[in-house]
Amino acid sequence: MATTIHIDPSIKAFIDKHGEETFPYECCGFLYGSDANGRNITVAKRVTNSKYGDQRRRFEITPQDYLEAERYAAMNDLDLLGIYHSHPNHPAIASVHDLAKAMPFFSYVIVSIMEGKAVDLKSWKLKDEERVFEEETVLISQLSTI
């Protein structure tokens, strides 16, 4: 059964803006919130796309930035729940490159940026015990700040 991810409208706007600003290059960042009563995303943090090569179709996050994201979650009593990135001039469909390094548990939110404008947002999560992505149901609704 598909899982549901609740994203605060301010977070969606934050992701859209990031993707539009970095167009035609991919942006990326971390998503935080609570998993206690459904998956609620209340905080997003930008991170530098450190991919060496063509950032128009690839992104990468350094181990140092990842460790910092874990520290931020622990210090702020948040759950690190996923990653977002943009697909410039591509649909918000998870690619084989997205799948190759996907981890269980995380939500992988993708925003499609067409000619500089955010047009779609989808979220993907590995199926339990399988290396297959399943699309999550995305609900954009006001969430109280943790």
């Binding site: 181990p63 990653i83 690619s95 490159h97 390094k101």
Partner: peptide
């Protein structure tokens, strides 16, 4: 010891 998943991907 820290275990760090590689975070990477992209459109195509």
């Amino acid at each position: 010891i820290s275990i760090v998943p590689a975070i990477a991907g992209g459109a195509a």
